[in-house]
Design a protein around this nucleic acid. Structure first.
Lengths: 157, 157
DNA sequence: CCAAAGGGGACTAAAATGGTCCTATATGAT
DNA sequence: ATCATATAGGACCATTTTAGTCCCCTTTGG
């Protein structure tokens, strides 16, 4: 998986929709209709995006939402983080911020690096990319140098 | 987030541990002790990894698990997929394989591309990388060409 | 003053997750 | 043979997360 939650998916759809007509304010009901999504859920998602500073809201009649900044300055990672919180593959298997397994787990460092690479990738994808129909060209980054395993160095311990 | 589940995290720890002493068979209890994880959970995880063909098990006394193939031939994506199922950021917000929103959502294609890039990244990280202490050097892939937004092209529709 | 918006929560139902346990089977050693 | 040690394969449960709904409040334009 590594799957996005539904709400995050919705958020991307919503943001893209707004990005395609950035001059107008968009209401929750308009977006819900257009995207065939339940109205209350769209409302909730919009609130989250606004609270995280990706959208600016205007109340009252003729209210609605507009992008807080140009679509090229909004990263996919911003949208994901707005809904799901900070991006990271591991919390090191323990919630408390500091992981008690850190000594024994032995993979934390390298997971963190992988995580970072994904974050960088997601930082490079902007809302403008998502909103356009043209396929984005992602640089198919070439893996890593090969490694030799320490092999049987450690039998007992 | 984009977070790995705890079990996946465990799986990585377990696989790394086995990879560091690949000649011997490792039992669930040995691994549980070493990694400070609950025994039944380690057992469950091992079963999953074996069923997915990443480990080979041997029953009976002197039984245990060994890698099904060399650590350099096991990708991080294999481990993740073994526990969480196929990697992908979206199921297009609907479970059934075919997404009814595909026409209106407008972001599916590009999400798929991003997803693919992450998968490629994860394919390039091997168990050997994870198991070693040395930091893996991930190519900090450079993002994408910039795009111009279609801008206000579409007012109503 | 009213209707149309968003703001902020509380709440609920359903699903995923983590974890445990039990019984069966295979295997090596005594 | 029998026993101790392992995995195999589920069933099961508790907890958390997630998605979705609803209600009451405030803002704003007509």
């Amino acid at each position: 998986m590594l799957k996005l939650s539904k709400l995050t998916d919705y958020a991307a759809m919503i943001m893209a929709q707004i990005a395609r007509a950035p001059e107008e304010a968009h209401t929750a009901s308009e977006l819900a209709q257009r995207l065939h999504l339940p109205h209350p859920t769209v409302g909730k998602t919009l609130k989250m995006l606004a609270k995280e500073g990706l959208l600016i809201s205007r109340r009252g009649s003729h209210g609605g939402y507009v992008l807080a900044r140009p679509a090229v300055e909004i990263a996919a990672s911003d949208i994901i983080a707005a809904i799901e919180g900070p991006i990271g593959m591991t919390e090191c298997s323990h919630v408390d911020g500091e992981c008690e397994l850190i000594g024994t787990c032995g993979v934390a460092d390298n997971w963190q690096r992988v995580s970072q690479a994904i974050r960088t990738l997601l930082d490079g994808v902007t809302l403008a990319h998502l909103a356009q129909e043209a396929p984005i060209k992602l640089p198919v980054l070439m893996p890593i140098q090969s490694v030799t395993l320490p092999s049987v160095s450690e039998g007992r311990r």
